[in-house]
Structures are given as structure tokens and as C-alpha cells.
Simulated scan of single mutants.
Amino acid sequence: SIQTLFEGFVKASVTAIESRDPTTSGHSFRVAELTVGLAETVDRTPSGPYGDVRFSPDEMKEIRYASLLHDFGKVGVREEVLVKAKKLYPNHLELIKQRVEVIRRGLELKYSRRKIEYLLQKGREQFAAHAETLDAELASFLAELDAGLSSVIVANEPSVMPEDFASAIQRFALQSFEDHLGRSQSIITPEEARVLAIPRGTLTETERKQIESHVVHTFQFLAQIPWTREIRNIPEIARSHHEKLNGSGYPYGWTSDQIPLQSKIMTISDIYDALTAADRPYKKATSVEQALDILDYERKAGNIDGTLLALFIEAKVYERTRPRR
């Protein structure tokens, strides 16, 4: 039947999305399961702000399809940005390590040359003492070099970075080492320092905007599909799942009265699954309890709907995606 064909198209589309970012495999299916579960809970609620809300079978179908396809726009985001696990791309970190090795060799040659020059100019007298002094200087520079590389490796992690450490990384880009040819070389460039000083996560501002653009891409793709009248709101629901009630979301900065109820429901499901997913390289999965605490913080901050969150918790909707034991 046409319905079976369409179901196959939707599932194939979701599989195509998630194949570009294997670390989020299953996310869209879990979000759909949670969103439909919360919508069913709202539908059964006899009182409160949503006591009069009832979703028809077609509207439930609309919610499910919008949830399954909410991240389709990620096909328009560069793959290396989608799967970026550290602040620097792997080839960039390798380049820094090679740069450190070149600086190390240059310093060693520089101090070897100074020893030879001293020996040629002044002979063996007092050479041992002078050589010891030069060796100590070289060891100090090499230790500084190693400490610098260690700092780069630590800063490259996606953890929250203290301000003083970020400032130290920025200053580090200004530090240079002179090699045997008199050339000054730095371990990292100012641009690399800027990336390493990202205070939280792994994305630069440009990369973050690329990720956020997936919502617009999703809408543009879904808007081209000739949906039937019963499920024509799928593009609208899908494009609003990153909006926040207080206007701090993206891509449009809409406030509560501009965001469809179905999207508010999906937002809670999307955040919950992103927090508890165990397969993301840039963060560890949180426990169910921690995830619910974070969602409550989001509620207090005015980002998500408190009534919907209460229903999500009271009805234990989150258990719908808990691994079966």
C-alpha cells in the first residue's frame, strides 16, 4: 500500500541521516518514541493547561513523522563537523605534534652548535662546566616544550575550560622558541589557540552555526514534500524543536506563543535523549536522574514547558526508551 511505501521512505530517510553520524544512531527513532509517548500522555490529561487538548490519529501520525525527520537537515552539514569529538581535528593535532618535534630538533642542534663553537674558540679548558650549563638550558627549554604540548592535549578535550586556563592557552601562542638557524617558532598559531580556548564543547562559533543550520535545511527539505492535508504541519513541527520558550533558541528565536505545542513536546524528548545517549564521542551519557534534573533546570530557566515536563516525569515517558534488561 501507499502507506507502507511511505513508512519505508521515512525509515530509509532516517537511516540515511544517521549513517552520516553513526555516533547518534537510533536518536531519531528514540525521539519519535518519546514524543509520541508524551503526546499520548497530554491527550489523556483531563485537567490543567492542556486538559482540553486532544490529538486525532492523523495528528499523532504527524507528530511521529515530524519527530522521525526532525534532524534530516544534517545531510547539509559537513560530516567532519557532525562527528567532531575534540576541538582540533585529528590532522591538526598531529601537525602540532610534528611542529613540536621540529622545534625540539632545532633546539638540540642549536645547543650542539654552541658547544662546538665554544670548543673551537676556547679549547677544552672549562668546556665541561660550560657544556653542563648549556645542557641545563636545553633541558629547561625541552621541558617547557613538553609541558606546552601536554597543555594543548588537555585543552583539546571537550570539557568545560576554566577562564585562567583559556587565557594561558592564548598566551602560549605568543611564546616562541629559537632554533639553530635563528628562526622563531611557536607550538601553536593564534588561530589554533582560539580553537583550543573554546570554553565548552568542541565547536567554534562558525561550526556551531553550521550545526544549527540543520533545522533550516530540515524545513526546506520537508516543505518540498507534497504532504496530504491531514499531515501538512510536519515541516512546521520539525523546524521548531530547538526553539526555547524565552526566545533563546534557534534558528528563529521564537517565544512560547510562536512555537507549536507538538514542537514543545519534541524539544523535551530531544534534550532527554541527547543527554542520556551513550554513544556520543564528545560527552559521556548522563543517568536518567541527572537528565531529569537538567531538564528541570531548563524549565526554571524558562527554556521548556513546565507542565509538559511534569507530565513527562509523572507518566514516566522516559522509560519507553530505556534498554530492556
Score class of each variant (00 low, 15 high):
151 S>K: 15
200 R>I: 05
165 F>V: 14
241 H>A: 06
237 I>K: 07
214 H>E: 07
150 S>T: 13
133 T>V: 09
128 A>M: 10
137 E>H: 08
210 Q>N: 01
163 E>C: 03
205 E>K: 11
144 E>F: 02
240 S>Q: 15
190 P>M: 01
120 L>N: 11
126 Q>G: 06
209 K>S: 09
185 Q>H: 14
170 Q>I: 14
232 R>M: 07
168 A>M: 09
189 T>G: 04
159 S>P: 00
188 I>V: 05
158 P>Y: 00
186 S>E: 09
203 L>V: 03
164 D>E: 15
226 P>V: 04
163 E>N: 12
162 P>K: 12
228 T>A: 07
154 V>R: 14
135 D>K: 05
148 G>F: 01
140 S>Q: 14
178 E>H: 00
127 F>L: 14
180 H>S: 12
199 P>I: 01
130 H>W: 12
228 T>I: 07
158 P>T: 03
135 D>H: 03
214 H>G: 09
239 R>T: 09
186 S>R: 12
169 I>M: 13
125 E>V: 12
221 F>Q: 06
237 I>T: 10
173 A>L: 11
186 S>L: 07
194 R>M: 04
131 A>Y: 04
198 I>L: 05
211 I>T: 02
233 N>S: 11
141 F>T: 00
215 V>N: 04
234 I>P: 08
121 Q>S: 13
181 L>K: 11
209 K>Q: 13
168 A>H: 10
117 E>K: 08
229 R>A: 10
149 L>Y: 09
193 A>H: 02
226 P>R: 01
210 Q>T: 01
140 S>M: 12
230 E>Y: 01
190 P>V: 02
213 S>C: 08
206 T>R: 14
234 I>W: 08
118 Y>N: 11
203 L>R: 10
139 A>F: 00
128 A>I: 10
232 R>W: 00
223 A>Q: 11
128 A>P: 00
193 A>S: 10
139 A>S: 14
125 E>F: 08
161 M>Y: 01
140 S>T: 15
146 D>P: 07
143 A>Q: 13
135 D>T: 04
236 E>D: 12
183 R>F: 06
214 H>K: 09
240 S>R: 14
126 Q>T: 14
197 A>I: 01
174 L>Q: 13
164 D>A: 14
229 R>N: 05
213 S>N: 13
172 F>D: 06
126 Q>D: 15
236 E>G: 00
146 D>S: 14
215 V>S: 11
207 E>C: 08
191 E>K: 09
163 E>V: 05
158 P>L: 04
172 F>S: 07
155 A>T: 05
209 K>Y: 02
201 G>I: 02
170 Q>R: 15
213 S>H: 13
233 N>V: 00
175 Q>P: 00
223 A>P: 01
181 L>V: 03
183 R>Y: 06
139 A>H: 04
190 P>R: 01
209 K>N: 08
152 V>M: 11
225 I>C: 02
166 A>T: 06
146 D>T: 15
183 R>M: 11
148 G>I: 06
132 E>F: 02
161 M>R: 15
188 I>A: 00
142 L>M: 03
151 S>Q: 14
199 P>T: 03
157 E>I: 03
138 L>H: 05
149 L>A: 05
195 V>Q: 10
240 S>E: 13
138 L>Y: 00
144 E>D: 15
131 A>C: 06
201 G>P: 04
184 S>C: 09
155 A>H: 04
143 A>N: 14
141 F>E: 15
199 P>G: 14
175 Q>N: 07
194 R>T: 10
219 F>E: 15
180 H>Y: 02
